[in-house]
């Protein structure tokens, strides 16, 4: 998994068509971000916007934001992507991961602002995108590729449970109600899916 250079699919990656496709897409997105950083490339930004803005809005709706706010915040996230494109480092995180952390942080800030009109409470997000020591870098980028490949192989019903559980932190009974499945099924699907994802994220760390 470590051979992922610029735009070249590593050997053996092409087994799952969907995975190979998203890897290519990922490289295109990283190139767009570089083009924005280097010359303020609006065409590159537009392409990123068309792909990510509808998915960010969808994510924000999943977390419980009302449609109007999700619409506005999705645009705000893309504006931040434009502003911060220069600090995107493809060796550190994949484009999708990087954009997710921006969306997540802006969502946290927006939720905090709406909870407390009191300006004294407004703070910087607790989950900052700090420059990191080198020890963190390659691992995360590779894990992202392995995770994407794993997600591609998860059955849709398991993926739906993971999505609600991760993005929304929804209690299991809520997930059961919303997907119209028994509570026991939620738990077993989540257990199966998380066991596989944890195997990717933390190989050998099951005892933690």
């Amino acid at each position: 998994m470590s051979g992922g250079g610029d735009g070249i699919l590593p050997e053996g990656r092409a087994t799952a068509g969907a995975t190979a496709g998203t890897v290519v897409l990922e490289d295109v997105h990283a190139r767009h971000l570089r083009a924005i950083a280097a010359q303020g490339d609006r065409a590159a930004f537009s392409a990123l916007f068309r792909h990510y803005a509808p998915r960010i809005k969808s994510y924000l709706l999943t977390t419980g934001l009302p449609p109007m706010e999700a619409e506005e915040l999705a645009q705000e996230v893309m504006l931040t992507v434009w502003r911060k494109a220069a600090i995107f480092d493809p060796s550190r995180a994949r484009a999708a991961t990087w954009i997710f952390t921006i969306a997540r942080n802006l969502r946290i800030d927006a939720a905090r602002r709406s909870r407390a009109a009191d300006a004294a409470v407004a703070q910087e997000s607790l989950t900052p995108a700090e420059p990191e020591p080198a020890d963190d870098l390659l691992f995360a980028a590779e894990a992202a590729d392995r995770l994407r490949a794993t997600l591609d192989t998860l059955p849709p019903d398991q993926l739906a449970v993971v999505r609600l559980s991760f993005f929304e932190d929804a209690p299991h009974p809520d997930i059961a109600r919303r997907l119209g499945i028994p509570l026991g099924t939620v738990k077993s699907r989540l257990r199966l899916a998380m066991a596989r994802l944890r195997g990717v994220i933390d190989p050998g760390g099951a005892e933690r």
Binding site: P54, R55, I56, S58, A74, A93, T101, D136, L147, I201
Partner: peptide
């Protein structure tokens, strides 16, 4: 921090596979 980056990568992968919702 390693683990954290990996969970964030899950967020990125889920975001990519999120059903798109049209903007205005």
């Amino acid at each position: 921090r390693h683990q954290m980056r990996a969970w964030e990568a899950l967020g990125g992968a889920l975001l990519n596979s999120q059903r798109p919702v049209a903007l205005a």
